[in-house]
Design a protein around this nucleic acid. Structure first.
Ligand code: FES
Ligand code: FES
Lengths: 166, 166
DNA sequence: TAATACTCTACTAATATTGTCAAGTATTTT
DNA sequence: AAAATACTTGACAATATTAGTAGAGTATTA
């Protein structure tokens, strides 16, 4: 239960790729797809949504790709997920689009509200920068095993796997 | 996104009804259905699952119904939801049944793990007793509007609405 | 023995998710 | 100018999950 959509998951991973990419250089969709094992067609859909939400910008033509629209510390995981999957609404009653007439007399109403706020607080406090450095206090005590490797160089990795040409 | 199933929602509400029912007397499924606006047939499915999980017991025959298997403070919301919807698994990779080979090299792995634990911690700390009294610290500052009314008497309410006979 | 109430399995309709496909448009390099 | 690269868009199909219904059966008590 409480499953996160693949769209949201891939979206966060794609944003991470863009964030960790070559400083100032656009990251090609093909490269993101290869590094994160997601189809180019599906990613196009996802990145298009993210671009419309103003989280990334795109550069066309050869050598083109995607760039963050803001600094990594200014982009939260919550924003990414909301952009792709809509607002968090644990129950139909909590959904601003639907609402509930019984809410005032409903015992569980505040329960779901409190949980929703807790989740949203977590996701809004977590930024791409935190993913890059693994230093958010929420994640302290946990370890990002291969973050150092990830940061050393994209092309070295990709050439090794043979997923893209050198 | 992150939607809770109606099964889980109805399950919690049904458990609340059983918990707040007549001391020691079984609560009939028909009464729960009427008070929570859920079909009897659907509730049967839900209560059956909860019974198999050992959260409630049933009494057959006229005057029969359902009882909590334990004290309200010993039954957490987390248990109820897990019983009905399975374990919380935000992503397929976090699901113990599926797992992920990439997990070690995946940046988001720890992110979802941390969030999942936060949610689970919240739900396991919240008990039926907290719903009955509205006094859990997680809910402090929030108010259960009509809890007093809820606690005054079931039959008075039901007779008024005409949903069950007197 | 009739009435009440729980038990169980199967099934279906609706909805949401997860992606694919194809045909574009824009930009830059050669 | 032409070709290659890369983003853009909308439609669509396959799959999975959810939500809920139906119906026949079993147990218990007044
Ligand atoms: S039924 Fe809508 S808030 Fe509980
Ligand atoms: S891809 Fe499985 S943990 Fe990230």
């Amino acid at each position: 239960m409480l499953k996160l959509s693949t769209k949201g998951q891939y979206g966060v991973r794609a944003m991470f790729e863009i964030a960790s990419g070559h400083a100032g250089e656009p990251v090609a969709i093909k490269e993101i797809a290869a590094r994160q094992d997601v189809s180019v067609a599906y990613l196009e859909q996802i990145l298009n949504t993210l671009r419309k939400s103003g989280l990334i910008t795109s550069v066309r033509g050869p050598g083109g790709g995607y760039l963050l629209a803001r600094q990594p510390e200014k982009i939260s995981i919550g924003e990414i997920l909301r952009s792709l999957d809509g607002p968090i609404a644990l129950t139909a009653c909590q959904d601003p689009m639907e609402g509930c007439v019984r809410a005032d007399g409903c015992v569980t109403s505040l329960l779901w509200k409190a949980l929703g706020e807790k989740i949203e607080g977590f996701l809004d406090a977590m930024t791409l920068r935190d993913l890059l450095t693994g230093k958010n206090k929420q994640l302290s005590g946990q370890k990002y095993p291969s973050l150092e490797i990830e940061k050393t160089g994209h092309h070295a990795f990709l050439e090794k796997t043979g997923k893209i040409g050198a």
